[in-house]
Amino acid sequence: MSKVFESCAEAVADIGDGATVMVGGFTGRGTPSQLLLALREKGPKKLTIVRNDASGGWKNPIDVDILIEAGMVKKVITCFAVFGSPKKVSLLERAAMDGIVEVELVPQGTLAERIRAGGAGIGAFYTPVGVGTEAADGKEVRVVGGREMILEHALKADFSLIKAHRADALGNLVYRMSARNFNPIMAMASRTTIAEVENLVDVGGIDPDEVMTPCVFVRRIVPTGKVA
């Protein structure tokens, strides 16, 4: 069966209530905005979203905010919940204050490593990041190599929505510049990875030396062209 989908709507059609969804990107860069719009249209409820930044407020107006606003989100796992100026209350913080959305704050590198571990078959790991802070609350602490570390568990998802610059029809992916960020590790960490791609080329059109995400990690591809 071909991995290439005609539309984002078809590609997200089986994301149902209660699904855990990773969303690639860092601010607007590498964010699969067309897949997010299609997911909002589809409208599943009680989603758990894993995403680097969930504060909104960046230059690109289409991010996971649109799902929170639509009342589709039960929980967000993120490192960035409040935007730049600490005085501003984000949509996510408002939803958390109202008890609508649960937020799990994770240090950025720990978030990346938990996702990487999820895709790599690692169950958990010890890290020095967050020791002695709220990030360590309720977690096992032990001394490893003379340094206090906390136990962090791998993250996996049902779906990953990611964005790539170039793909072939098998799902080999190439990212461009700082739009790579969380996309390659999220591609590995879920059962069904859906890639929104700017350019689709024939199989063999990407030099194997250049492939950043091998096609085994990618289930669906939607060519959307260049969308800012």
Partner: peptide, 20 residues
């Protein structure tokens, strides 16, 4: 990363940078 009395804040990469 967080002001007292606020529900949420943003770790960003600060905890990782401070530790590493």
């Amino acid at each position: 990363w967080k002001l007292p009395g606020r529900k949420l804040g943003s770790y960003g990469g600060a905890m990782d940078l401070a530790a590493g």
